[in-house]
Simulated scan of single mutants.
Amino acid sequence: MSSLVAQEGLKIDWANMPTYNTIMAVAVGAGLITLVMLGRELLRAPEEVEPDGWALTFGALGTVLTTTGLHMTLTWPLAAGGFPFDNIIFGETSLGFGVLLLAAALYLWKRGAVALAAAKPIQALARVAQPITVFVGGLGLSLVAIAAAGIKYQLFAAPAEEPISGEFANHPMVEATFMSLLIAIVGLGALAFAVLVNRVRSTGTAGVWGRITGWLWGLSGVLFLLFGAMNFFTHIGLIVNTM
């Protein structure tokens, strides 16, 4: 009987469904954390910021997210396994974040030292970043919309064959709620960032928006990084259990 159950268990054609949202999640988490770290350093001691180091960091993370996000957005690899919506959720958002990180890396590499040498470096950087807040805010709203869809349609539930997460396979709202809240927090952080940049540009001070953005992105970044790291184990287990 047990062999019959095993034969009838979930099988996935992994050759036709490449899955790399593991490294995407780690890169997203690291990107959010490092943005908070840079913002904190800029507000406390801008003269100590080393733009080349941050350019390298954002360039590395942006490359990972842009390449994987672009491939997922254009080819929809997860559709083959019955998860076409995940290509939108993970692919398009990672692509957007990755391009933003690459843009930040390029600017810091080419113009970072000049901006930091200005009389009011924080305002100078805010003036540069202000136009892109339209896109950042749009991505924030998109993430909130994804979170709403995750709750309504009970997305993100792992199959029983996946270790750890699969323990909640019979309770799809558990992971749907966790992932939706996590994505919503990132989205709210993006909206707060847009307000923060415009406030710094006009007043020269971050006010409460610096703390709000830092907490939202810092918390969600840590959770994304840890969840992505854990998924290297759970996804390998899922592959082994469904080959």
Score class of each variant (00 low, 15 high):
Val99Asp: 09
Leu74Lys: 04
Arg127Tyr: 02
Leu102Asp: 14
Leu95Met: 13
Ile122Lys: 13
Leu155Lys: 03
Ala147His: 04
Thr93Gln: 14
Pro121Phe: 10
Leu95Glu: 10
Leu108Asp: 14
Phe83Pro: 00
Leu101Val: 13
Asn87Asp: 11
Leu141Ala: 13
Tyr153Thr: 00
Ala124Trp: 07
Gln123Asp: 10
Pro159Glu: 04
Leu101Met: 15
Gly140Asn: 10
Ile146Phe: 12
Gly91Pro: 06
Ala126Ile: 05
Leu116Ser: 09
Leu95His: 06
Ala148Met: 07
Pro84Arg: 09
Ile89Asn: 12
Gly138Glu: 08
Gly150Asn: 04
Leu108Val: 15
Leu143Pro: 00
Phe97Lys: 05
Leu139Met: 15
Ala160Lys: 09
Ala115Pro: 04
Ala103Pro: 02
Asp86Glu: 03
Ala148Arg: 00
Val144Trp: 05
Gly98Glu: 09
Gly140Lys: 08
Val134Arg: 07
Gly150Gln: 01
Ala104Gly: 15
Ala80Glu: 11
Ala105Cys: 14
Ile89Tyr: 04
Val134Tyr: 12
Ala118Thr: 07
Glu92Gly: 07
Met72Gly: 01
Ala113Tyr: 04
Leu116Glu: 10
Phe97Met: 15
Gly150Val: 02
Ile122Met: 15
Thr75Leu: 10
Gln130Tyr: 05
Ala157Thr: 02
Leu100Thr: 12
Ala105Gly: 14
Tyr153Gln: 05
Ile88Pro: 00
Lys110Val: 14
Val128Ile: 14
Val128Lys: 06
Leu141Trp: 14
Gln123Arg: 15
Leu95Ala: 10
Ser142Lys: 06
Lys110Trp: 10
Ala79Leu: 08
Leu141Gly: 12
Ile146Thr: 06
Ala160Ile: 08
Thr75Gly: 01
Thr75Phe: 12
Gly138Leu: 01
Ala160Glu: 07
Ala113His: 12
Ala149Cys: 04
Ala103Glu: 12
Pro159Met: 02
Leu95Tyr: 15
Leu106Lys: 10
Leu102Ile: 15
Gly98Phe: 11
Gly150Pro: 05
Pro84Phe: 03
Ala145Leu: 09
Thr73Gln: 06
Trp109Asn: 14
Met72Asn: 05
Leu102Phe: 15
Ala126Val: 08
Ser94Asp: 10
Leu108Gly: 13
Ile89Met: 07
Ala126Tyr: 06
Pro131Thr: 07
Ala147Arg: 02
Leu141Lys: 04
Ser142Tyr: 07
Ile151Phe: 14
Ala79Pro: 00
Leu108Ala: 14
Gly137Ala: 13
Leu95Asp: 11
Asp86Leu: 13
Phe156His: 06
Thr75Asn: 11
Ala158Ile: 03
Leu101Thr: 11
Thr133Met: 11
Gly140Cys: 09
Ala118Pro: 03
Phe97Gly: 03
Glu92Asp: 06
Gln130Ser: 11
Ile89Gly: 02
Leu155Trp: 14
Ala104Met: 15
Ile89Glu: 05
Pro131Asn: 03
Gly137Leu: 01
